[in-house]
């Protein structure tokens, strides 16, 4: 599977570098918005994966590599391994550059924006968000291809966000189940709000249980995603 990752690395390395540089250039601006940095970081990770898929789609190289001595399921697992490596590499760039900027540039705007990112909640938030995004995207890619997969993915994501907002309204309004989550404070910097949610869960469950909970959630997501992608790709006609 590492050979498959190496092949994708050779194909996409310069654009990967470009995406990483863009992210660092972005984070170095003292914007003071953790949410934007997190969103941009997550999108950058998605972008790193998208680069390899776009190259594959453009060159129609899927047929070539499926003709090599490999099982289809190995090809899918290779892509998940690559996603994992991208996730870790992206995380290293995001948190590494944030830590470096925080340590070397003392402007308060950096502290406001980057400190929450470098907390346990920030790291858990990054992994939860990116793993969720990549795990939901890949099965759609293997089922519908790059173009239709992306369209469905982003439409689905939009619908999901609307549904979450709607449920929150319902639960905090007519049903009186929870106190309003998306307050002005939350919306002013929803990443902190999001991280705040993770922080509350951490306080309720304790550090060990919350770690196990996050790990189990991520594993479940990834396993379900791999299973679906494998099923779709094994049926795909190239």
């Amino acid at each position: 599977m590492l050979k498959l990752c190496y092949k994708d690395y050779l194909a996409g390395r310069w654009l990967w570098l470009g995406v990483a540089v863009l992210f660092i250039l972005y984070i170095i601006q003292p914007m003071g918005q953790t949410i934007l940095i997190m969103a941009f970081g997550t999108l950058a990770v998605y972008g790193l994966l998208a680069v390899t898929l776009i190259y594959e789609d453009q060159g129609r190289t899927e047929t070539l590599y499926a003709s090599l001595p490999l099982k289809r399921r190995t090809i899918v697992r290779g892509r998940y391994l690559l996603s994992g490596l991208i996730l870790l590499g992206g995380g290293a760039v995001i948190f590494g550059s944030a830590a470096l900027i925080l340590a070397s540039l003392k402007a308060p705007a950096y502290g406001k924006a980057l400190s929450p990112l470098l907390s346990a909640e920030g790291i858990a938030g990054y992994f939860l968000a990116t793993v969720f995004l990549l795990s939901s995207f890949l099965p759609l890619y293997y089922r519908f291809g790059l173009g239709r997969g992306n369209l469905l993915y982003f439409s689905g994501l939009f619908a999901f966000l609307l549904a979450v907002a709607g449920l929150e309204r319902l639960a905090s309004g007519p049903l009186h189940l929870i106190s309003p989550l998306f307050t002005a404070d939350f919306l002013g910097d929803p990443a902190r709000g999001f991280l705040g949610l993770i922080g509350s869960a951490r306080e309720t469950l304790g550090p060990f249980l919350s770690f196990i909970f996050v790990l189990s959630l991520l594993s479940l997501l990834v396993l379900a995603s791999i299973r679906l992608s494998t099923r779709f790709y094994c049926r795909k006609e190239l």
């Binding site: 190496y6 060159g59 190289t61 047929t63 070539l64 003709s67 090599l68 001595p69 490999l70």
Partner: peptide, 30 residues
């Protein structure tokens, strides 16, 4: 498949890579 050599009707490879790099993406599988 490890005993088959194939040539598709339209040669399909990453267009932006050099031949040497392309070889590096294929050779490790055999």
């Amino acid at each position: 498949k490890s005993r088959i050599g194939f040539v598709h009707d339209m040669p399909i490879f990453y267009e932006h890579l050099t031949l040497k790099k392309l070889k590096d993406t294929v050779a490790p599988f055999y």
